[in-house]
Simulated assay, not measured.
Amino acid sequence: MDIIKADTIEQYNRYFGFQTKHPLVGVVHFDRSDNQPTHKMTLGFYALFLKKTTGCIINYGKTVYDFDDETVVSFAPGQTVGIHRTEDGPTPEAIGLLFHPDFLHRTSLAQKMKQYSFFSYASNEALHLSVDERIILQDYMDKITHELNHPIDKFSKPLIISNIEVLLNYCMRFYERQFVTREELNNDVLVRFERLLNGYWDSGMAKQHGLPTVKYFADKICLSPNYFGDLVKSETGKTAHEYIQLKIAEVAKSALLDSNLSTKQVAEMLGFQYPQHFLRFFKKQVGCTPKEFMNDAVA
């Protein structure tokens, strides 16, 4: 299947037969489009889809996600999404908020976009909404639509930007709620994470591949790095990176006290390429050098 490029919202709208009311922002209704073939498309803008009925399947990377009732999926510029209509299925009733990065230039929202980590979640990590939550997001999309239908004036862009930001903040809140309501599943993820962390050094992976990364563990648990990181943060109060750093420091202290290894050998065992990097890391994490730590332990 050929990949269609939609670098602009105008290109996207032309493909589906939507009217373009603003070149950098739009709200589209898929139940109003007759052109919804199976396709793959690379987007050049942010896209957030609020889906209310079944009728299609989304592919994102190697993951297939059944596009079910009351869900939100989001995509950042440069991501490729595949849409597959289900046979004899109903016309998907979905609303899409599209906004180009250029629309955010010189706004405070441009600086905040990195905090909306759900734009890099995989499709199977979609946000599942209650009816009340869907109504809230629908309301802000309606507000944006109203502004797009209003004659442009000096208030148009600030009002659209502010409504986009509030909508994204609600998505963050609802994702936080979703992490809480999936507590049993999340605990299982943390148990697997801890087991994989311990096994990373026990199996000698560190010597072969260096220091462990968030992506390594996310891949092992079959989650996107952003979703995995946010889940760990919601459950532990620490980012996945901070959690890994603390574990490295723990293993380092145990190795320094419970073995005859030199500092250089401990650094190699942990996955540090250079001993001086280990020394800096240890001093930052523990507050003293490895030598000072061992001397204090003996004293």
Results as ranks from 00 to 15, higher is better:
72 V>I: 12
168 L>H: 05
211 L>H: 02
237 G>A: 01
50 L>S: 08
51 K>V: 13
255 A>S: 14
126 A>I: 03
256 L>H: 09
109 L>S: 06
187 N>V: 13
215 K>M: 10
23 P>C: 03
132 D>C: 10
272 F>R: 01
239 T>A: 04
293 F>M: 04
193 F>R: 02
275 P>I: 00
217 F>Y: 05
92 P>T: 02
102 D>F: 06
285 Q>T: 05
63 T>N: 07
134 R>Y: 06
149 N>K: 07
252 A>T: 03
226 N>L: 14
280 R>W: 02
158 P>G: 06
145 T>Q: 15
130 S>I: 02
294 M>V: 12
111 Q>W: 10
24 L>C: 10
245 Q>H: 07
274 Y>C: 04
178 Q>G: 03
94 A>G: 00
187 N>G: 15
96 G>C: 07
285 Q>M: 08
253 K>N: 03
270 L>Y: 12
254 S>W: 13
87 E>F: 13
51 K>P: 07
56 C>E: 15
205 M>C: 12
89 G>Y: 02
113 M>Y: 03
148 L>G: 01
5 K>T: 12
297 A>T: 08
115 Q>S: 15
202 D>W: 06
101 P>T: 00
209 H>W: 14
202 D>R: 10
68 D>W: 09
264 K>T: 14
294 M>S: 06
77 P>F: 09
109 L>Y: 03
244 I>S: 00
14 R>F: 11
287 G>P: 03
298 V>M: 15
176 E>C: 04
149 N>Q: 10
102 D>I: 05
161 I>A: 04
128 H>G: 11
288 C>Q: 07
96 G>A: 11
10 E>I: 11
140 Y>L: 10
233 K>Y: 14
150 H>V: 09
284 K>T: 12
60 Y>G: 15
167 L>H: 05
294 M>A: 09
33 S>M: 04
185 L>T: 14
84 H>D: 11
189 V>L: 08
208 Q>G: 10
88 D>I: 08
104 L>Q: 03
71 T>F: 05
195 R>A: 15
